[in-house]
Nucleic acid binder design. Structure first.
Lengths: 227, 227
DNA sequence: CAAAACTGTTACAGTTTTATTACAAAAATA
DNA sequence: TATTTTTGTAATAAAACTGTAACAGTTTTG
């Protein structure tokens, strides 16, 4: 498991708890504490799954859910709604507005985890799977080994994370900023040009003599794993 | 034998008895006295085998069994159902809902043990076996002796446990935290750096002059038994 | 075509992570 | 209880990795 999860929740205690536990499970977690920021961050970072409070300051979780599900580009991001009241009625409503699952507070972490995993397995096998391939490039998250044309490749931690991120959404172009937040983490302070250097290192490691560069540079936009 | 077994049973006398005897056999045993807790604990600790009462307060054993067998992640955990009545009909029912074996109370401990071993041998050879190898490294759980290239090696208790854990999932990378909780135990207070020292001791003991290090360091991730 | 904007590459200093060692305290054993 | 073994930690050394800056090269724009 190596998915990016975005939490939109104004109760700091829940954010802290969930963030801590999900990180321990190997997820990359980002969070926002209000609807406005949350919506922006989701569009920006394209998480693999969203955990969202039902009620939120300003833009409500319900609204965001509707907006996302209406948008072709984001409609496939699974959304789990969190709510304080355990009314059946709300559950129906949640599913109606397009949420993929629904969990009532207080919830146990294992329960949340089970639901997250189930959703991910369904919606994004490439994120949930332990072994992913792209062409003759293979990455094994259990052994943390990377192969190109069946030959093992050594990657440093950052290059490994970068590749792991790229391979979840091949061909998609990510800006340096998106790569920084998704691979490096949220409130980190790193020059965006630093991405270039790691891209170079990754290229050097995964590209084979005489074959096409697996990483495509998109001028003024960013990079993508492509062929 | 070195498997984790979880018991879900509300009769304390049975729990105590079975727990005591299984521990003596080398199993790690945990137990819950009601269905709710049991289900949670099983999902949480992912035991190698479950021993479950047919009738339970709140969530019944039958229900838990069904739930587990429906879940991709837990469906392979072997389940032995315990029941007071020895009716053939129940046996059929048990097997129908996915239980792997069925034993009626009162039962003799040797009988239970035989069934447990049989199931484990079938489902998880690496856990059930008394002698496990990885390459020319061999570990005998009965005599608690370790061999490399047929020559016996002396290991301290912690190094032995570490190796025993590694060898169950060779090549898999474990973080220091995972190693601490799995080898040292759950609520223990040990510096994660201490793992490094024991890794060194283990390396020193099992590695042969002039051969590749059997333990792989994965920077920013942990260690694995590899070659 | 020149200027501007953007990307590629390199080297290196600084940082982080891991390895190794020695040692005192704790635990097991005789 | 004395002796031996094992343990965890802290300190230091070594190795690996990272980020930046500088400059070269390339592409786009005016």
């Amino acid at each position: 498991m190596n998915a990016n999860i975005h939490i939109v929740e104004d109760e700091q205690s829940i954010v802290t708890l969930v963030e801590y536990n999900l990180s321990k499970e190997g997820f990359k977690v980002n969070s926002s504490t209000n609807g406005e920021d949350g919506f922006k961050a989701i569009k920006d970072t394209n998480p693999d799954l969203v955990l969202m409070d039902w009620m939120l300051p300003d833009l409500s979780g319900v609204e965001i859910c509707k907006l996302l599900k209406k948008n072709e580009k984001y409609k496939n991001i699974p959304i789990i709604m969190l709510t304080a009241k355990g009314e059946e009625e709300d559950k129906v409503k949640a599913l109606n507005i397009g949420a993929d699952d629904y969990i009532t507070k207080p919830f146990s972490f294992p329960e949340l985890l089970a639901r997250i995993k189930a959703l991910l397995r369904r919606s994004k096998p490439s994120v949930a799977e332990d072994i992913i391939s792209f062409g003759d490039l293979k990455i094994d998250r259990i052994t943390r080994k990377v192969y190109r044309a069946n030959k093992q490749i050594d990657l440093g931690p950052t290059e490994y994370n970068l590749l792991d991120f790229f391979i979840k959404n091949p061909k998609r172009v990510y800006s340096r900023e998106q790569l920084l937040t998704n691979v490096w983490g949220d409130n980190i302070n790193v020059e965006s040009r630093t991405v270039d250097v790691h891209i170079r290192r990754l290229r050097q490691a995964i590209n084979l003599e005489g074959t096409k560069d697996l990483i495509r540079t998109v001028r003024a936009a960013g990079y993508s794993l492509d062929n």
